[in-house]
């Protein structure tokens, strides 16, 4: 078992302890990376309950694959890639089981405060993302938050680039139209 991490790396000792199966080290690792990894699941899955479940499955995969980290790129980027792939895999399986990739009626959540889209707090952003249909939210998150190109989205979701562009356009339209429908009067007044 060889880790390319240098001994001076802040993660080296913790990762070694995790590889030995020490439960305290695993908990420390989990709690230290949970804050950065959970938002990845949240913006793909919407609600926190499913996001934590998917993140825990991804963490289990991470614990089993720690000795396979080759040191290419940042460690946090490697973790984020595993978590994102797990979230996408979860959505794929869910779509196969429940056929949820259908357009849902977008309803602007009444709890969102009366602010412009570019002034929303992160909690309100997550609420809006949760209201989006799954197939639109995935494309929106991949392009807007993770910087995927449409070619990469098409390859990841096994769809065409045209479908990826259409989904991104549709998600933007949902968000802006829903916001205008709810706050048009107040926005014009302000």
């Amino acid at each position: 078992m060889h880790l390319p991490l240098t001994p001076t790396s802040p993660h080296a000792d913790l990762i070694d302890a995790c590889l030995r199966g020490e439960r305290r080290a695993q908990e420390q690792f989990y709690r230290s990376h949970f804050p950065k990894l959970l938002p990845i699941c949240l913006r793909y899955l919407g609600n926190r309950e499913e996001s934590v479940e998917v993140l825990n499955q991804a963490m289990l995969k991470i614990f089993q694959s720690l000795d396979g980290y080759r040191g290419d790129g940042s460690f946090e980027g490697w973790l984020a890639t595993i978590v994102r792939n797990h979230a996408l895999s979860f959505l794929r399986e869910q779509a196969r089981a429940q056929r949820k990739l259908v357009d849902k009626t977008f309803v602007w959540p009444p709890s969102v405060p009366n602010r412009a889209l570019d002034q929303l707090a992160v909690e309100d952003i997550l609420k809006l993302l949760e209201r989006l249909p799954d197939h639109l939210r995935v494309v929106f998150s991949l392009v807007v938050f993770d910087g995927y190109t449409h070619a990469e989205v098409a390859a990841e979701l096994e769809i065409t680039e045209t479908a990826s562009r259409w989904r991104l356009m549709k998600s933007r339209d949902h968000l802006q139209r829903g916001y205008r429908a709810t706050h048009a009067d107040k926005t014009s007044e302000s």
Partner: peptide, 18 residues
């Protein structure tokens, strides 16, 4: 869009403790 840049920034700084 302008709101997307704001959202990206907001989520990048977002932390949720375990």
């Amino acid at each position: 869009e302008p709101f997307e840049a704001h959202w990206r920034r907001q989520l990048a700084d977002y932390r949720s403790e375990a």
